[in-house]
Amino acid sequence: MTPTTSQHWVLARKPTGRPIITGPEATFELTTQPIPTLGEEQVLLKVLFLSNDPAQRMWIDPNILPERLYTSPVEIGETMRSYSSIAEVVESTSKTLPVGALVCSTTGWCEYVVLPAETAMRIEPVDDLPPTHFSGIFGIAGVTAYYGLVDIIKAGHEDAIVISGAAGAVGSVAVQIAKNMLGCRKVIGIAGTDAKCQWVESLGADICLNYKSKTFTEDLKSATDGFVEVFFDNTGGEILDLMLTRMQKEGRVVACGAIADYNSQTRAGIKNWYDVIGMRLQIKGFVVTDAGPARWAAIVGALVQGYREGKIRVADDGQTIVPTAFEDIPKTWMRLFDGQSTGKLLTRLE
């Protein structure tokens, strides 16, 4: 029987600091909404897995002007958005997406959603791998890592590279691409625990440094002795500032994320800006949606090929899947900012 209503988490108020999950000042509000009737070439999706990404925090930030954001913000009263959700088609008027098909699509924090069929990418199975990897290594995380390294910064075998957030969804794939696909001469990861660092090294990093260690600054100086050509930055903040002092002349910084500042009311400034000038550094920000559908598909193909050649490891330890009751969706999302996940963080709706 086709459902007629769906639960939704909507934005109740825009947070200026860390989002508030419970209580009268909560950032999100749980609602029930009617499901609209399907039009032509539309599908009704049942959301199975929600993608959790640090960039979602920017979409609800009142301090970022809409014209300075790379996508439309989530406004108060709107369903919280999620890129790369995994969903099942439960009703369809589409010629290409039948009932039962699994898709990867942008959805909201909801049980069901009606979307144009053209906005849902059908998941074509790769061997016996779980479909969740199309939200991670073969999805937005892997495409972001590949696009940043290959298209934006053009990393190659002559480069030594430092990757911050190396145990995260994007960083963990970037480590593998840099070392195993591009053949970078040295790959240095940065992560938040010794256990995460060991995991990053198992992916191919020559060394991974725990930024919470008392000796981190000296360890980083030692690991980057002779300096490095590329910094793939997923965190911003103090690590970015420090890395500006560890770059070779004409080094390249690719700015992917700034999770260190997303929940901060007093964002860290850059103290080592002279190094950008004196070392003639290039700093390039990017957003993966600029890749476009054709390039996106080509990158997914390259990642699948990398997996089949044994250069990209696709395993359960590359994703953190949290079984979650619908009322606890915001709590699982907040694990992003508490260092409680390794690789891609996914919410499995119970």
Results as ranks from 00 to 15, higher is better:
120 A>R: 03
149 L>R: 01
292 G>R: 03
184 C>M: 05
87 A>R: 04
40 E>A: 15
317 D>W: 07
83 Y>F: 14
180 N>E: 08
158 E>R: 13
221 K>R: 15
327 E>D: 11
319 Q>P: 00
79 T>Q: 05
303 L>W: 09
97 L>T: 09
129 L>W: 02
65 L>H: 14
244 L>F: 13
56 Q>N: 15
126 V>I: 15
157 H>V: 15
117 A>G: 10
246 R>V: 10
303 L>H: 11
139 G>N: 09
19 P>H: 07
211 Y>G: 08
102 L>S: 02
3 P>V: 11
144 T>A: 04
179 K>N: 13
73 P>N: 02
45 L>D: 09
235 T>M: 10
98 P>E: 12
29 E>N: 12
74 V>T: 13
139 G>P: 01
290 D>H: 13
315 A>C: 03
176 Q>K: 03
327 E>F: 05
40 E>Q: 09
25 E>C: 10
182 L>H: 03
217 T>S: 14
42 Q>Y: 04
136 G>V: 12
17 G>W: 00
237 G>Q: 02
243 M>W: 08
175 V>D: 04
246 R>N: 06
24 P>I: 11
270 I>W: 05
14 K>M: 14
32 T>Q: 15
333 W>E: 08
126 V>C: 11
342 T>W: 06
144 T>I: 06
211 Y>Q: 03
271 K>F: 14
40 E>I: 12
139 G>E: 06
66 P>T: 06
131 P>Y: 02
9 W>L: 02
185 R>A: 11
314 V>Q: 05
184 C>K: 01
329 I>E: 13
155 A>Y: 05
122 R>E: 15
259 I>Y: 07
335 R>F: 01
212 K>V: 04
36 P>A: 10
327 E>N: 05
322 V>T: 12
57 R>Y: 08
183 G>W: 04
330 P>E: 13
75 E>D: 10
221 K>Y: 10
44 L>Q: 13
253 V>A: 03
85 S>A: 14
315 A>H: 03
289 T>H: 12
335 R>E: 00
121 M>D: 14
139 G>C: 01
17 G>M: 03
82 S>Y: 03
139 G>I: 06
288 V>C: 03
318 G>R: 07
250 E>M: 11
54 P>L: 08
203 L>F: 04
158 E>W: 12
306 G>L: 07
299 I>N: 03
173 V>N: 01
121 M>F: 07
75 E>K: 10
142 G>A: 04
291 A>T: 09
163 I>G: 00
1 M>Y: 10
39 G>A: 07
16 T>P: 04
157 H>A: 15
12 A>H: 13
280 R>E: 10
276 V>M: 02
310 G>V: 09
65 L>I: 05
141 A>G: 08
210 N>F: 10
232 F>D: 02
337 F>I: 08
216 F>Q: 01
244 L>C: 01
134 F>L: 02
16 T>W: 00
46 K>E: 11
57 R>G: 02
47 V>A: 12
71 T>A: 09
286 F>C: 09
